[in-house]
């Protein structure tokens, strides 16, 4: 733990949440993100400090609507939520109410409540998940619903479901987040006591009336499990870092940049919408075929450098033996392109 604290420096740690875990698994090959998240570094501040601020805020209109929707559902002892979930008069317990608790204390009470059969609706449970060899506390904004002896995760989201359809990106993000919670609950209670079906509660059509739909997150669960298992090497990675590497925000930007350079990143354009460091990494990855997108890189025969791919295509550089097949394709493509442009 010492080493992790040293990496972060004097600034307080950013806690993992379902969203950061979901993003982590979105690009599991990126050591930089894994290390920064494991150390709890404030990536927004770090990116700004090294001169590549990103825009990762949330619109206050969106926040206000989300909060209003949730408040409406939970008003009057969850009257509306009960009716949309069709659960009748069952116990409701909010574990988020007493904030003076210690994390471990609250986690203990969560365990106790989840194991008991007392309540059917359990709000704000405190869960743990093993991420990259570390125990991460999750404070989900979720409700666990007990039905037929199994727990179901209930996610409240404020995007609209219109005629049974919703924004695909929003739904898949919600499904991955819910899968993180399912995984955490299963770690606590065992696989058979937590359902792989989660309930998504959203406004229906253009009204503010809630509707509940069931999502099967088995696919997300297996993806998460596989990618979390691949992350287990982060502790080894951190241990192998030279002692000079530190992300203390008090350090001068040049020192932070050389620390960043000590950890490999795997930039892909998808990072731009999910990672706070992406603008910096994009600049660093300039000139690589990966920066143009995974499909471009594959179409160029997996050659790493843009300039090299072009040189091979033009025939001014002879390819390595393993690039021979790619080289044939590239030369052919270059010839056809030149011919078509000449003819046009």
């Amino acid at each position: 733990m010492n080493q992790i604290d040293r990496l972060r420096g004097s600034t307080p740690a950013k806690r993992h949440n379902a969203r950061t875990i979901a993003a982590l698994t979105g690009n599991p090959g990126c050591s930089r993100r894994a290390v920064l998240d494991a150390a709890g570094v404030d990536k927004v501040a770090l990116a700004a400090r090294v001169g590549y601020p990103g825009s990762f805020g949330q619109s206050r209109f969106a926040l206000a609507r989300g909060n209003a929707f949730e408040a409406m559902l939970k008003a009057d002892d969850c009257a509306l939520l009960r009716s949309v979930l069709d659960v009748g008069m069952v116990g409701y317990q909010d574990l988020g109410a007493d904030l003076d608790d210690t994390l471990t204390g609250r986690h203990g009470r969560t365990r106790e409540l989840l194991f008991s059969e007392r309540s059917a609706l359990i709000d704000h449970p405190l869960l743990t998940l093993d991420v990259a060899g570390q125990t991460v506390f999750l404070e989900p904004d979720l409700i666990a619903l007990r039905s037929e002896g199994r727990l179901r995760v209930v996610e409240i989201k404020s995007f609209a479901i219109v005629d049974g359809q919703a924004d695909a990106a929003a739904v898949s993000a919600a499904a991955v987040q819910a899968a993180v919670y399912v995984l955490a609950l299963r770690a606590l209670l065992g696989d058979d006591r937590v359902s792989h079906e989660v309930v998504l509660v959203c406004p229906e059509n253009f009204s503010f009336q809630p509707v509940a739909v069931v999502l099967d997150v088995r696919k997300q669960l297996s993806t998460l499990r596989r990618q979390l298992s691949r992350l287990s090497s982060v502790a080894t990675l951190i241990a192998a870092l030279p002692p000079s590497v530190s992300f203390d925000l008090a350090l001068p930007p040049s020192a932070l940049v050389s620390s960043l350079a000590a950890i490999d990143a795997r930039y892909a354009p998808e990072c731009l919408s999910s990672c706070e460091m992406s603008v910096y990494c994009r600049e660093e990855a300039a000139g690589s075929t990966a920066a143009l997108g995974r499909s471009v890189r594959e179409s160029l025969g997996g050659i790493e450098e843009v300039a090299l791919a072009l040189d091979i295509a033009r025939g001014v550089v002879s390819p390595e033996p393993e690039q021979a097949e790619a080289a044939t394709l590239l030369r052919q493509a270059a010839r056809l392109r030149a011919e078509a442009l000449g003819a046009g």
Partner: peptide
Amino acid sequence: MSTLVALARAQAYVD
């Protein structure tokens, strides 16, 4: 993406 378009992207980057 086709190799021809990928090649055009590479050329665009260099140019």
